[in-house]
Simulated scan of single mutants.
Amino acid sequence: MNITKNIISIAKKVLHEEAAAVLKLADYLNEDFDRCVQAILAIRGRVVVTGIGKSANIASKMVATLNSTGTPAMFMHAADAIHGDLGMIQEDDFVICLSKSGNTPEIKVLVPLLKRKGTQLAALVSNIDSYLAQHADFVLNATIEREACPNNLAPTTSTTAHLALGDALAVCLLESRNFSSEDFGALHPGGSLGKRLYLKVDDIYTQNAAPKVNIEANLKEIIIEISSKRLGATAVLGNAGDLVGIITDGDLRRMLSNFDNLANIKAADIMTPSPLTIDCEAYAAEALSIMQQRNITQLIVVKSGNFAGFVHLHDLLKEGLV
């Protein structure tokens, strides 16, 4: 399939224009942005994000980002707000209103109602001279030179700018709250993302057998242990019960090439000493990372420094981490 150069050049032009507009937003950050973050951190209520048209779509995404990063938020459509939904705003809530022009009829009706309730209002606008900006407590400047649309009409660059500035606000709140990956995981328990953030090795390895042999074990004992436990490996323990090595299927194959006489082979002769281990309290995602980096399919699990069992790549596949 041939792709015309004109199509590619148009796409590149849009991406370059929108990227430049987003970068320009950094120059507009000022004391209002800082004060807005501090005000949100101080409230006991929620952040209510509102808008109309395409701004409503961006507002809805902004709410999702805030909620997932530790700032309770809810969406309110600006048109519905002036037809009854304004009642959802409670004392100590904080409103962020998104609008490109800041002069739409719904916004002009909504703003006085919010001010009458005594609600703090932040305007995320592309027109800082607008009605909305002039009546807001905080102005988040998302000014753009023009839309990427060739007619300078369809919201394109403006919605991208609003989205990016909303993300900047959410991340500032996140870092100010010291919101950790563990906190993020607690709010995202579903899917592979959530499991990467909360699933630990301890949640998985106990489902497996724990193959182990003594360092003096003979070849027959080693093969039986590996075969019966079906993990492709066995731990090797010293006489004091300490972990001293690992024997894998690969070690057995290499043994056939390295030894002519198999009769007197012991575990100590073919094991890999000082094997890689992972603590049972480590995250399963860390186990996966080690396996991928070392190109291996199993890891020995230790608990309080002692051999506890194995975690296998198949376990991680089953949990959807890969």
Rank of each mutant, 00 (worst) to 15 (best):
N6E: 15
L15G: 07
E17K: 14
E17A: 13
A19M: 04
K24V: 01
D34S: 10
G45P: 09
R46A: 10
V49Q: 13
T50S: 15
G51C: 09
G53L: 03
K54M: 04
V63R: 10
V63N: 13
L66E: 03
L66G: 12
T69Y: 05
D80L: 07
G87Y: 09
I96S: 13
L98V: 13
S99G: 05
I107Q: 07
V109N: 14
Q120M: 12
A123Y: 08
L124G: 05
I128T: 15
D129Y: 11
Q134P: 02
N152T: 03
L153T: 08
L163W: 00
V171P: 00
E175G: 00
E182A: 11
G185P: 03
A186V: 06
A186Q: 11
L187I: 12
H188V: 06
S192H: 04
K195H: 02
L199F: 04
Y205A: 02
A210H: 13
K212Q: 14
E221F: 01
I222N: 06
I224E: 14
G245N: 08
I246Y: 02
G250L: 13
R253W: 14
R254A: 13
M255S: 11
M255R: 07
S257C: 04
L262V: 12
I265P: 11
K266H: 10
A268T: 12
I270C: 12
T272E: 07
S274K: 12
L276E: 15
D279W: 04
Y283I: 05
A285R: 09
S289T: 11
S289R: 14
R294I: 09
R294Q: 15
Q298W: 00
I300N: 01
N306W: 01
G309Y: 01
V311S: 01
L313Q: 09
E319W: 00
L321H: 11
L321Q: 01
